[in-house]
Design a protein around this nucleic acid. Structure first.
Length: 557
RNA sequence: UGGGGCGUCGCCAAGCGGCCAAGGCAGCGGGUUUUGAUCCCGCCAUUCGGAGGUUCGAGUCCUCCCGCCCCAGCCA
């Protein structure tokens, strides 16, 4: 796409294939197993596969690798389809399923048996493991390895017919028990699973293994470049062996790239499933999870995810990307798109003593400081306001540089409104400040104050008379450790402060009608969106805080 | 003392034998600013896991060594 950007190794291969005429049009595929929700790691693969197809005028298929009915379900199928759509990609043709090819896959299994290249083995799983040998010792041939073709054919039929117990028989490829590559030591092609499949129902009692199915699915679909992650590198010889030994209609090639790893989180379906199952999070769409559903609920846009994924290297190194890099793209996107609003998270009453109690002025504030095209909104402004407790201090010794907010006796600007000066406070019985009494400086709306009055800074506010109450959920990283799995149980590394719920927050009136999921910036606080799952209740999820150089450098608040 | 991969700035990474080793993130310094945001400017690897070697010339080629990741599911 970007002519400046250097081509990654897969693009180089594709360009070479295209110019050499090896292929005239490329076909890629995104092949999720419907056994969990998609996460940010899958997004990289999705962007890569769909991106390549788009870039080279090819096609990308969405194909479910549903060869293991025990772990898979329609719920996951639907969630995955929704997530891919949400990311903004359109697959070529219908949604495809490995299960659509079960009949063909079975016919080809017969072909292998007849060619003496596969046999039914009656070793148990444990025995197979034992016969397989180890990393340093070769395996031994199964006693069933040389059984007559007819016998294998009959047994395989019995397996299919449901006449065989699970675990008693398997169809194995006949390759090389002494291969240094363990994947070639007569891998299992079909296993007996007498369970219903979410799509094929009870039609099958045997299901193909990933290794047997995947390449053939690719060949059936005419996939030219089958892109997967590094851990499948060892499987490529098997992938090729099957393609070479079967009358498949096309010749796909497998290429492997390094998957995305992010620090301070986990991107493994097993671990995500565990977090959901153990109740450590709210569900697959918990905003703290790196699942696409979670990111969506958190307020991260598809554009931000795509920009992030496009910034990642497609290479054979497997590194760990800093969460800060992802956060950078989230902020960059939100800064551009999010309309601004005012919301006070820790309300403290402020009364303007020189403003007529009954007078309400209507102020117009821009929705975006740099993008006037996003329009303006009207906000009521009266004598009773709310400001954030963190934006006020009675400590008059605080320097202007250290505390650019409201201090008793000093001036501050109310964002989009007037300059005020704090005159006094009202305390409760416990001595706690419950209200600030302030005077407004006239003629400072949209104008600089007279010489001699230098506001310390700008703080946000909300008109008490029209404010709406809301709940705000402040999310932080799910894990307190960069590498959660470093010290044993990753759940030990969970960040106990990953979710802070603030009740009784005061939002500007326009926020009452906030559209669920739509990005917003609460000025000086961060990016938020109304929680789509909270119904009528006004609940905002913090997508991400604003970059805060001050706090990072040891400042407070 | 099995096989397959990978090692370039704190993180990601470009580099495909010939100007001073791209870029992004993070960080640091400064400017603008009615968000301590954004934006802008500047700084940030005499060195490419290590040691030898080939070459007029090597991060790029060769040799050896070191380190890290993956593989012994009838998971994908």
């Amino acid at each position: 796409m970007d002519s400046e950007k250097p081509r990654n190794f897969i693009q180089q291969i594709i360009e070479r294939d295209l110019s050499a005429g090896v292929v005239t049009q490329i076909v890629t595929r995104f092949p999720p197993e419907p056994n969990g929700y998609l996460h940010i790691g899958h997004a990289k693969s999705i962007c890569l596969n769909f991106g390549l197809a788009e870039q080279y005028g090819g096609a990308c298929h969405l194909r479910f690798d549903d060869t293991n009915p025990e772990a898979e379900s329609e719920e996951f199928v639907n969630a995955i389809i929704e997530d891919v759509r949400w990311l903004g990609f359109a697959w070529h043709g219908p949604v495809r399923y490995a299960s659509d090819y079960f009949e063909q896959l079975h016919a080809w299994a017969l072909h292998l048996i007849e060619a003496g290249k596969a046999y039914v083995c009656e070793l148990t799983a444990e025995q197979i493991r034992d016969y397989r040998g180890t990393l340093t010792e070769p395996g031994r041939p199964s006693p069933y390895r040389d059984r007559p073709v007819a016998e294998s054919l009959a047994l395989f039929e019995a397996m299919r017919a449901g006449e065989v117990e699970e675990g008693c028989m398997a169809l194995r490829a006949r390759i090389d028990m002494a291969s240094p590559n363990i994947n070639l030591r007569d891998p299992v092609l079909y296993r007996v699973k007498r369970v219903a499949h979410h799509r094929s129902g009870t039609r099958w009692n045997i299901y193909p293994s990933y290794d047997y199915a995947h390449g053939q699915e690719d060949a059936i679909e005419g996939v030219t470049h089958s892109i997967c992650t590094l851990e499948f590198e060892d499987h490529r010889p098997l992938y090729d062996w099957l393609i070479d030994n079967l009358p498949v209609p096309s010749r796909p090639r497998q290429y492997e790239f390094g998957r995305l790893n992010l620090n301070y989180t986990v991107t493994s379906k097993r671990k995500l499933r565990q977090l959901v199952a153990e109740g450590d999070v709210d569900g697959w769409d918990d905003p703290r999870l790196p699942t696409l559903a979670g990111l969506r609920r958190r307020g991260v846009s598809p554009a931000a995810i795509r920009a992030f994924c496009d910034s990642l290297a497609v290479a054979k190194t497997d590194g760990v990307v800093d969460m800060a890099q992802f956060e950078h793209f989230i902020r960059a996107d939100l800064n551009e798109s999010a309309p601004r609003a005012l919301c006070v998270l820790r309300p403290l009453r402020l009364r303007l003593t020189n403003w007529p109690a009954a007078e309400i002025q209507t102020l117009r504030l821009p929705n975006h400081p740099q993008r006037p095209q996003l329009g303006e909104r009207e906000l009521a402004f009266g004598a009773a306001l709310y400001i954030d407790r963190d934006d006020f201090s009675t400590d008059t010794s605080l320097s202007r540089k250290r505390f650019k907010r409201l201090v008793l006796g000093d001036w501050v600007r109310l964002r989009g409104a007037y300059v005020i000066r704090a005159e006094d406070v009202v305390r409760d019985a416990a001595g706690e400040v419950v209200e600030v009494l302030a005077r407004i400086e006239p003629d400072t709306l949209g104008a600089d104050p007279p010489a001699g009055i230098r506001p310390r800074g700008v703080i946000h506010w909300v008109d008490a008379g029209t404010a709406v109450d809301c709940e705000v959920r402040l999310y932080d990283r799910l894990f307190a450790e960069p590498d959660p799995e470093a010290a044993g149980d990753f759940r030990q590394a969970l960040n106990p402060e990953s979710l802070q719920v603030r009740q009784g927050c005061k939002a500007e009136s326009t926020l009452a009608g906030a559209v669920p999921g739509a990005a917003l910036q609460f000025e000086r606080e961060g990016y938020f969106c109304r929680d789509p799952r909270a119904g009528e209740r006004l609940v905002f999820n913090r997508t991400i805080a604003l970059r805060d150089t001050w706090a990072r450098q040891g400042g407070e608040g």
